[in-house]
């Protein structure tokens, strides 16, 4: 196998301890968010205070790793000061780049902090060369995180037509195909992933296991799924539920509870010009971060050295204990 230049491994952290775990496990870069609605993982007990973020940046920089701040939800009218404060705090921390999705916050960054490196979040849904070039021309975006809707061949084509780096998801939760535009949670709970930073807010999630071991998951009054005893479960999100629709019963009407795993496509992504490989999972534990980051560190290094890695053990960490290459391999997925 031909040796390939190693890409940057971008890993998640939901807590300071998670960030240290990711760095120690071999992450080149760690992305994380502040407590509150400014990022799409606003879960109880998760995320960083400005002081913790500053300490995390110091820890990472001492070990030649970078830290990215995800400030990638969309501020609503009258609340933009919360997002602006988060941006100011991140810059003050010496963050390596800020990940944004909102055009207003992009303008604020360009005007207030013109020297700050900025990445375009997957939440912005920029999937065409034309859209990405607009962001680069107007806001000097240095890297785009591509939505999970493109094949590797399409990524290569986009790469050839844009002036910025590409970051691609390679492992973890596979989001809705129109990222940044999901309103399912908002419809059911009144809270929004994009506006309040939370998908399936925990205070609206209910689990019930009956005497026979059947598990029912609900979001508010909506039954998302019912798992038979011993059947693998998924996250309690509307998009992963089974429903009765006109042509089918108990049907995954939106998408199935599977995880993205592009281990075997890594060489293709690297040849397509992808600069950074992103692992999803800021809401996951340190045990997950340690296992997945270590595995991908070894895989990236193996491919770079011309070896074929073994990452079969990652299946145990996937949602529903199932994995997919999603749209990256073929548009026939789903």
């Amino acid at each position: 196998m031909t040796a390939l230049p190693p890409p940057e491994l971008v890993c998640p952290a939901g807590t300071p301890a998670g960030l240290r775990t990711a760095v120690d496990a071999g992450a080149d870069t760690v992305y994380c968010g502040f407590q509150g609605p400014t990022n799409a993982r606003n879960f109880p007990g998760l995320n960083f205070t400005p002081k913790q973020m500053a300490q995390a940046v110091i820890y990472a920089h001492e070990r030649d790793a970078k830290v990215l701040a995800a400030i990638n939800s969309f501020p609503t009218a009258g609340r933009t000061h919360i997002w602006k404060q988060a941006i100011d705090d991140a810059v003050e921390c010496g963050i390596d780049a800020i990940i944004i999705a909102d055009i207003g916050m992009a303008r604020y960054l360009a005007a207030r902090h013109p020297d700050q490196r900025v990445h375009l979040s997957v939440q912005a849904g920029a999937s065409s060369a034309e859209a990405i070039r607009f962001w680069c021309d107007r806001f000097d975006i240095k890297r785009v995180v591509l939505p999970r809707i493109l094949t590797v061949a399409e990524i290569r084509k986009v790469h050839d037509e844009i002036p910025c780096e590409i970051e691609a998801f390679v492992f973890g939760n596979i989001g809705m195909m129109a990222e940044g535009r999901c309103s399912l949670t908002n419809y059911v709970t009144g809270s929004s992933t994009n506006l309040d930073g939370v998908c399936s807010p925990a205070n609206h999630v209910h689990y019930h296991e009956d005497d026979q071991g059947n598990l029912t998951s609900r979001l508010c009054d909506v039954t998302i799924d019912r798992y038979a005893q011993g059947e693998n479960a998924g996250y309690p999100t509307i998009c992963k539920g089974r429903y009765n629709v006109p042509h089918k019963e108990h049907y995954y009407a939106f998408e199935e509870p599977v995880s993205l795993n592009l281990t075997h496509l890594l060489p293709d992504l690297m040849r397509a010009g992808v600069t950074a490989l992103k692992i999803e999972g800021r809401q996951r534990s340190r045990a997950y971060v340690r296992a997945v980051v270590s595995a991908f560190r070894a895989a990236v290094d193996d491919y770079a050295a011309g070896r074929t890695p073994d990452v079969s053990h990652l299946l145990a960490l996937t949602e529903g204990q199932r994995e997919t290459q999603g749209a990256f391999r073929s548009k026939t997925w789903r």
Binding site: A202, N203, H206, Y207, N232, G320
Partner: peptide, 18 residues
């Protein structure tokens, strides 16, 4: 990982999820 334990049904949670 506790999420993985939940997916595999080795861990069960009920009551106040938050």
């Amino acid at each position: 990982d506790s999420d993985a334990l939940f997916f595999s049904r080795d861990l069960s949670i009920s009551g106040d999820t938050e």
